[in-house]
Design a protein around this nucleic acid. Structure first.
Length: 494
RNA sequence: CGGGGUAUAGCGCAGUUGGUAGCGCGCGCCGUUCGGGACGGCGAGGUCGUGGGUUCAAGUCCCGCUACCCCGACCA
């Protein structure tokens, strides 16, 4: 089971276990082993560069919508949690709790024991609504203080029983936006606006087609009025929740007393939203585009867009090819392409495999023959196509290829999503389908939590979302046969 | 918390009826190679998870402890 999945011959493929894929192929993540620090990620530089790119692009998008960054404490007093009933009930099951503030050496055993118990235990944030809204209660006094639009990029901890690299780790990195508004409508607009920012980012940068929509009551965030989300399909047909945006209503405002005086001098509670995406997106990215050779990075977020692989058999050839490659790399960099020269004394095949594994979208081969002909051979990571490019037009051609790869990755993923989305109106067919393989199933549902729970119980499929812009269509609920006015998306989820 | 496993070199593993530790990969050096994961030679690297016990002798047998993995319950 735990045999090496990366072998001489090839690499474990997707039907197995994605987490192996990350560990062995990705070179971006690792689990801390042989310690009680379980299920945490070590993000290697290459993986972190990806996260930095994600941060940079998303942050710019947030700022376009007037959101600013701030930072709130990692420790949350236990009592804060207790203020919002639904919230505490959910998160209580997965909290790391700090109960002491120092260690004492026991001379008899040589062991360190916790000492100095805290008056009130602190929770390591599993999400920051409570501590941020406690602060907001002091920051918000007047309608003039609104809207309050703040985001933070932080780590959070959820003590999960079972972890999965990138998709469900005990500690992960994310951004969480927290806004407060004077009116319900404004908050609702903001919640929707942010989920659409996510959709735009996922589709246009990560090349991941997503369904945007609304969660059911059973699937919504604990403490929210309702939750909006973007759901992506992985290559195996399972769903991955890629981002959420919650309309919190006045629930937290009432618990934390976030209120203000309006224009008429009347005290009002604020209307709030919170929204976030995490390093889980990296998992989604890999699972969406990866193939048997490893990852494939969409050019727009790739830590490295083009690698110039030098090919040589002698010192003279090395000098020749490395010089030529460096010159080309400079040209590309000057034009804004993230390029790098691989001049290591390795056989070409070794270099090819390494960069393919890392998903670099474009490989440019520079050998003695190419230098003589003033050309490079460009090989696309997405489809393996080769093209000869004259050095004079390298910038233009490389940019064109990168654009084409970006588009192709999205088109391919969308095609897969559409091909694996089925409309089914009969519950036995629904069950049969999920036994055969995982797909998105568009079906009618009456809206009752009971039918939803029964389907989950019997098939493990959940309602991923009620898509925006769903067409009105009369039908009958899969389970109970009662009237339904629209279809919802069912799938098994990661 | 219930059930089942595992712990030996950086990683993955083998180690027979108890006799003092080996393989593959990786790593270092040398040589031959080099347009898709090369080969040969030499070399470095281990208090065998931990604490006891049996024994002339324990990686191996016995008891305790710890940690991790898998399945289950749990996971907006």
């Amino acid at each position: 089971m735990s045999n090496q999945s990366e072998t001489k011959k090839g690499i474990t493929t997707r039907e197995e276990d994605y987490s192996k894929w990350y560990l062995d192929v990705v070179e971006a993540a690792d689990l801390a082993e042989n310690s009680s620090v379980r299920g945490c990620m070590v993000i290697k530089p290459y993986g972190y560069a990806l996260w930095e790119n994600i941060q940079k692009i998303l942050d710019a998008k947030f700022k376009e919508t007037d959101v600013v960054n701030a930072y709130f404490p990692i420790f949350i007093p236990k009592s804060f949690f207790e203020r919002e009933a639904e919230h505490v009930e959910h998160f209580a099951k997965e909290c790391a709790v700090v109960t002491h503030h120092r260690l004492e050496l026991d001379p008899a055993t040589g062991k360190l024991n916790p000492a100095g118990p805290l008056e009130e235990p602190l929770i390591v944030r599993p999400t920051s609504e409570t501590i941020i809204y406690d602060t907001y209660s002091r920051w918000v006094q007047s309608y003039r203080d609104l809207p309050l639009l703040i985001n933070q990029w932080v780590n959070i901890v959820r003590w999960e029983m079972r972890t999965r690299v990138f998709l469900r780790t005990m500690e992960f990195l994310w951004q969480e936006g927290h806004t407060a508004h004077a009116s319900r409508q404004e908050a609702e607009d903001r919640a929707k606006q942010m989920v659409l920012v996510y959709k735009d980012f996922l589709e246009n940068y990560l090349a991941m087609p997503v369904l945007a929509g609304r969660k059911t009551e059973a699937e919504k965030f604990a403490g929210a009025d309702y939750t909006l989300c973007v759901e992506a399909m992985m290559q195996d047909g399972k769903a991955l929740q890629a981002g959420t945006s919650h309309m919190l209503g006045q629930n937290f405002a009432k618990s934390f007393n976030v209120s203000f005086l309006d224009e008429k001098g009347e005290r009002q509670f604020v209307w709030q939203t919170s929204w976030g995406v995490s390093t889980r997106m990296i998992g989604g990215l890999i699972m969406t585009h990866g193939d048997d050779k490893g990852m494939i990075m969409p050019p727009k977020i790739a830590p490295l867009q083009a690698v110039l692989v030098t090919i040589f058999a002698s010192e003279e050839e090395k000098k020749l090819t490395v010089e030529a490659a460096k010159e080309l790399a400079e040209k590309l960099k000057a034009a804004g392409v993230i390029a790098k020269v691989d001049d290591r004394d390795e056989r070409p095949g070794v270099k090819y495999f390494e960069w393919e594994k890392k998903g670099v979208p474009l490989r440019l081969e520079v050998g003695p023959k190419d230098v003589a002909k003033k050309q490079v051979i460009a090989v696309r990571r997405d489809n393996g196509e080769k093209a000869v490019i004259g050095v004079d037009e390298i910038v233009k051609q490389v940019k064109k290829l990168l654009e084409s790869i970006q588009k192709n990755l999205f088109d391919r993923a969308l095609k897969n999503q559409l091909a694996n989305t089925k409309e089914i109106d009969d519950y036995s067919k629904f069950k049969k389908q999920l036994e055969e393989n995982d797909v998105f199933i568009s079906s009618h549902w009456c809206g009752s939590a009971q039918c939803e729970a029964q389907i989950k119980e019997e098939t493990k499929a959940t309602i991923r979302c009620i898509p925006f812009n769903n067409k009105a269509e009369k039908g009958k609920c899969l389970v109970c046969g009662q009237e339904s006015k629209e279809r919802v998306i069912f799938a098994k989820a990661y």
